[in-house]
Design a protein around this nucleic acid. Structure first.
Lengths: 171, 171
DNA sequence: TCTCTTGAATAATGTACATAAATCAAGATA
DNA sequence: TATCTTGATTTATGTACATTATTCAAGAGA
């Protein structure tokens, strides 16, 4: 009888050598997402490079990875309360919001003073900075071409949510 | 012997009545992601409301959902080739890129004429619009305060990637 | 005849289990 | 002694299968 191995410290396949580097658990996933799941999970670790790169070293080097950013969680921490809307017009260019930008909005965050909000005024939907001055609400554009709009009781007015992020896509 | 049911058309639990509305398959997921997987999958369907809302109807109504946007796939179609970097300075405000914005960069896209790129020049990393005029490369700021920078052979120069999206987050 | 109860049928779901992968060290070989 | 081969050990992984959920219609009861 040949004998090899034997019970001992550190025997066997080490933990964490799987592709995930961590214990896993089977979870049922809709078929349509199974294929892209790999990249979905990967996207939770997008490298965030530091702002400055020291002399001549290529950015590709791992040396410059400052941290990893979970873009997903950053933009959509609570999927249930998030919706998107496209910005129209130039009334908020002072806040860096341009026509066509995609706004990520939290419908549950309280609309405090100086927050950028999506509001409905007399049936018109708009994005503006909300000012609360002594109980008076004002919708403030960020462009001198447009005047502030004080909210009066005779107006239909509601706030749909607070703008959390603005995404502009290039070509 | 009592008899009920029996084999027949449309018998049994119908397809698609599960929470996913679709057939599923068990896939192993790292334990650290299992908890947030529900919201990860949900985020693939962020409602995108139409730009205008007709008279007075609340935005929350499903009537106004124009489509659903897969934010995730939009921003990170190819996780392997994407990295992030924070913008510094005001040389690109003309393109709506402000200090502190998060830039999502594709390192594999070809850096064509008029593309906004992350480049390394003599060891300094920078974001500029790339111009290609008769083989001559120029890094073009989008701010009149700064001059264009023609690339000459004596410069260390490389392009790290093409800026695909700019994300600004509010408070 | 109409309504309610219940068994059969079928899809959805979670997990136990069989298999694969990775590592170590005993024994074989040079 | 140094190197190679191989079995034992342990973790990683995919999936078969038992269980649960949902629906339909037969039969019971009013």
């Amino acid at each position: 009888m040949k004998k090899h191995g034997g019970a001992r410290e550190n025997a066997g396949r080490p933990r964490g050598v799987g592709p995930h580097g961590e214990a896993t658990k089977p979870v049922r996933i809709p078929l349509s997402l199974v294929e892209s799941l790999g990249s979905i999970l990967k996207s939770h670790k997008i490298p965030l490079y530091s702002g400055r790169v020291s002399a001549g070293r290529p950015l590709e080097s791992d040396n410059h990875v400052q941290e990893y950013v979970n873009l997903y969680k950053k933009l959509v921490p609570e999927p249930e309360s998030i919706f998107c809307v496209k910005a129209q017009g130039d009334s908020m260019v002072g806040a860096g919001i341009y026509d066509g930008d995609l706004l990520i909005v939290d419908r549950h965050e309280e609309a405090g003073h100086k927050k950028i909000v999506i509001a409905s005024v007399n049936g018109e939907q708009t994005v503006k900075t909300l000012l609360r001055v002594k109980g008076q609400l004002v919708l403030m554009p960020q462009n001198e071409k447009y005047p502030p709009l004080p909210i009066t009781p005779d107006m239909e007015f509601s706030i749909q949510g607070v703008v959390k992020h603005c995404v502009r896509s290039f070509s």
